[in-house]
Computed example of a mutant assay.
Amino acid sequence: MAKIKIVGVSGSLRQQSFNTALLRNVAGLLPADAELLIYRELAELPLFNPDIDALEATPAVAHWRAALRAADAVIFSTPEYAHGVPGALKNALDWVVGSGELVDKPMLLFSASSSPTGGDKASAHLAGTLQVMTGAIIEGGELCVGSVGKKIDANGRLHDEATITLIQAMLLALLEQIKTNRAAELSMS
C-alpha cells in the first residue's frame, strides 16, 4: 500500500508559531507508513479574487490546490485572531471553495492558543467553513489546546502527556478513515 500522505496547514504565519510547532510534533507521532508535509506557502497566495481565478490560477494557487489534491487527509492547526481564523488561512480556503480539493477529504482540526479555551471560537469558525465546503472532519477530530505555551517548550517540543495522548487517538482514527477510503476506492475500480 502506498505511503499515506497528510498535509498539515498552520493558520499562523509567525516564525515561532505554536500551531506550526504542534504540526511538527504531530509528524513525529505518525507511524512509518504515513507522513505529514507542512504546507508553508500560505503567505504566497494572492487575495482571493474570482475574476483572477476565472482566467487562470496563479502558480501559488495551483501549487496549493495540487498539495491538497495529492493528500489523503489534511490537518489544520490555527490560532485564534479576534474570535476567528487568521486572514491568511481564510484566504487559502476561499481559493479552494469552487475547485473542490477539500470535498470529502478526511481532516482533523487543531486550535492552539495561549488562552485557556485554546482558540475554541477559531476552531468553531474553521469547522463551520469546512463543513460548508463538505470537508470530512472525522468524528472527534477537533482539539483546542489551551495554555499552549505551557505545553510546548522553547524548542517547539510538545511535552504535555494528556495532549499527546489525545492527538495519538485522533491520528489513529484519521489513519483508519484513510485506509477505509482507500479500500473503498479499490473496490470501485
Results as ranks from 00 to 15, higher is better:
94 D>E: 10
89 L>C: 05
178 I>S: 02
72 D>H: 13
168 Q>T: 08
71 A>F: 13
157 R>A: 09
135 G>Q: 10
136 A>L: 12
68 L>P: 00
58 T>Y: 09
177 Q>T: 12
186 L>G: 02
104 D>V: 03
95 W>H: 15
118 G>C: 10
95 W>L: 00
83 H>V: 00
130 L>Y: 06
150 K>E: 11
157 R>V: 15
119 G>C: 09
165 T>C: 12
102 L>H: 07
124 A>T: 07
180 T>V: 07
86 P>Q: 02
63 H>Y: 11
77 S>M: 05
78 T>Y: 02
168 Q>D: 01
111 S>I: 10
99 S>W: 04
124 A>V: 07
107 M>E: 00
149 G>D: 12
128 G>T: 01
150 K>F: 08
76 F>I: 08
133 M>T: 01
145 V>R: 04
147 S>K: 10
149 G>N: 11
86 P>M: 02
123 S>N: 15
143 L>Q: 05
129 T>Y: 13
63 H>T: 06
168 Q>S: 09
84 G>W: 08
160 D>A: 13
87 G>Y: 11
69 R>D: 10
125 H>G: 00
69 R>T: 11
170 M>T: 02
141 G>N: 06
149 G>I: 00
174 L>M: 04
89 L>T: 01
121 K>G: 03
67 A>G: 01
123 S>C: 14
147 S>H: 07
104 D>H: 15
132 V>K: 14
144 C>L: 12
68 L>A: 01
185 E>K: 15
82 A>I: 09
179 K>G: 04
81 Y>G: 06
132 V>Y: 15
72 D>K: 06
64 W>P: 00
100 G>R: 09
102 L>T: 06
128 G>Y: 12
83 H>I: 00
174 L>Y: 02
110 F>M: 13
91 N>W: 13
181 N>K: 14
61 V>C: 05
